[in-house]
Nucleic acid binder design. Sequence first.
DNA 1: TAGTCTCCTTGCGACATACT
DNA 2: AGTATGTCGCAAGGAGACTA
Length: 355
Amino acid sequence: MHIVMANQGGNNVLRDYRKGNWTVQETMVLIEAKRMDDERRMKRQGDSVGGEKPGGKPAELRWKWVEDYCWRNGCLRSQNQCNDKWDNLMRDFKKVREYERRLADHQQQLITIGESSSERERSDEKSYWKLEKNERKANNLPSNLLPQIYDALVEVVEKKVQRGSVVGLVGAGGTTASIPNVPPSSAAALVGQPSSLPPSMQHLPISPPVSALPLPPPVVAQTPVQQQQQHPHTHPFSQQLPTSDSDTSEHSDSPAKRRRRGEGTSGGASGSESHEVGTAISRSASVIAETIQACEEREERRHRELLSLHERRLQIEESKAEISRQGINGLVDAVNKLANSILALASHKTQSTPK
DNA sequence: TAGTCTCCTTGCGACATACT
DNA sequence: AGTATGTCGCAAGGAGACTA
């Protein structure tokens, strides 16, 4: 875990970045964040004609914004992690998109030649979504790009292309470099081609735009397996964290325990010894049970401590707010009194000095 | 052991700013 | 005005850890 002091809109926040594989939910949040970021930037560019830094404003850190957005939506990743994940997503996405485009072109040729639909069906090329894992591998395609992720990426990338061509503003620094010259016709074809539609969309009459996708709540829906793996106190996205925490691994196979095991199994196998072994096993079992119980208690205690810490922080912030409120009230009172005094003084002077 | 994934590094282009 | 320098976004490659 990376713990850094991140500046979030002026507020210093202690950020505990999650490591490990990206879950689908996290990926969807990232894609949504990129989509929002694109929209935001296009809006800015539309407002003020200019480059990356319109209105003389300092350049905003793009990926910092993405990170903040992700954090607001339960994806606890750093800007670098977001950047890297996005790069990898785009690599996979482009491979699949190119493959589907080639496939679409090929099928178009067959149509123009006049091949029957059965001929086209017999064609060696299948949609990426119908390929087996090994076939995908053989075609140098990503083996497990999820349809929902592809859908979301299509939404983001194609929207970006369309905006780029409509607005006529090309973002600096390779904003369009990631989209290698997609003509509007082929872009439309890409979206419209049945073969390019992932299975998740093929049976759906209308695919909801990414913007309509519900943002994941802090606690996301998970598979039963994930739910099993997840500890009730851990963060919803932490199910992929290695379970061998320093806390638990410490007690799993300590030198002391190993010594005990070695002592218990050494020697002959007489009746009394077997009885001793039995009692030793039961003792060990009770020790293990106690250890596990202690461990759980520690976790519980830690959780409670965290909660109380949160509460204390809230209380401190509330008291701070109260103090500042009182200060402001006092200031207002003082100003009012001063104003009244000035008014009284002024009226008194005007009365005492008649012309 | 090959494949996958994350993370890190490097290079390039575009832009802004400072300096001559 | 031209040049040097720094920053940022993006793309790509590779190392290392992990997994089936």
